[in-house]
Structures are given as C-alpha cells and as structure tokens.
C-alpha cells in the first residue's frame, strides 16, 4: 500500500526537494505551505506521516504539532520535524509539542526514508 506523506514547508524549494525525494522513494505526497494550511490539508485527507518545517509564517511547526496532538483522532499520527537546527533545544521543543521524530536538513534521501520508516506503520 502506497503511503501518503504530508509535507509542510513555506519554502517552495524545500517542498519541491521533498516531493522529489519522496516520490522517488515510492510515496504519495500532499503539500501545505504553513501550519494553518497543514491543518486544512489534514482535514481533507489523513496522511500516514507528516513532515513539517519549524520556521513558518502564520503557524510554525511547534504550533502545528500542538494543534494536531490536541485532536484526539490524530494522537497516533506520526509527525517528523524538518530542521536545519541540529541543536537539542529545538528538538526538545519539538518533542514537547509532540513530535514523533526529526529530520535534519539538508537531508540525504536515504535518511529521510529511514526516518519515515521508523515511524510509519
């Protein structure tokens, strides 16, 4: 069964890079441009995994994750944060918000896929 990944990033470049890497790896891809848009897309169709950027306008990655986790139906939705910040404070904040895991940019497609597999059933 093809897995669907929702990517949320305000950078068109990163959305394109992610889409290419994910499609090459055999995933279906949905996209959103910020946290608010991410919630809208999520309401349309449930993905298997969400990959979200942290720094975004309107609603950042932390806000998005917190909003998703507040909703009972998404308690088990795996969310990976995409970050260039490898510092632990950012990761810790993402974890506190309820992130399942993280991917450090710039990412190797193989690592991206490995991270998804670690959280996707």
């Amino acid at each position: 069964m093809t897995k669907t990944i929702l990517t949320i990033d305000d950078s068109r470049t990163m959305r394109d890079v992610l889409r290419m890497a994910l499609i090459d790896a055999g995933f279906d891809v949905m996209q959103a441009v910020d946290g608010v848009n991410g919630l809208e897309v999520l309401a349309e169709r449930r993905p298997d995994v969400v990959i979200t950027d942290i720094n975004m306008p309107k609603m950042d990655g932390f806000g998005f994750i917190e909003a998703v986790r507040r909703d009972e139906q998404y308690k088990n939705l795996p969310i990976l944060v995409l970050t260039t910040e490898s510092d632990d404070a950012k990761k810790a904040r993402a974890r506190d918000a309820g992130a399942t895991g993280w991917i450090v940019k710039p990412f190797d497609p193989a690592k991206l896929v490995a991270a998804i597999k670690r959280v996707a059933a």
């Binding site: 069964m1 897995k3 090459d24 790896a25 990412f107 190797d108 497609p109 896929v113 996707a120």
Partner: peptide
C-alpha cells in the same frame, strides 16, 4: 557560534521497500 557544517547531498533516488 554554532558552526555547523553541512554535508552534501546526492539525490540518488532511494528506492526502499517500506512494507
């Protein structure tokens, strides 16, 4: 300053059977 170095990326399609 956190002088993180960035590794390069090669976009080799990663075809991995997930299931």
């Amino acid at each position: 300053e956190d002088d993180e170095e960035f590794g390069s990326i090669d976009f080799q399609p990663a075809l991995i059977d997930i299931g």
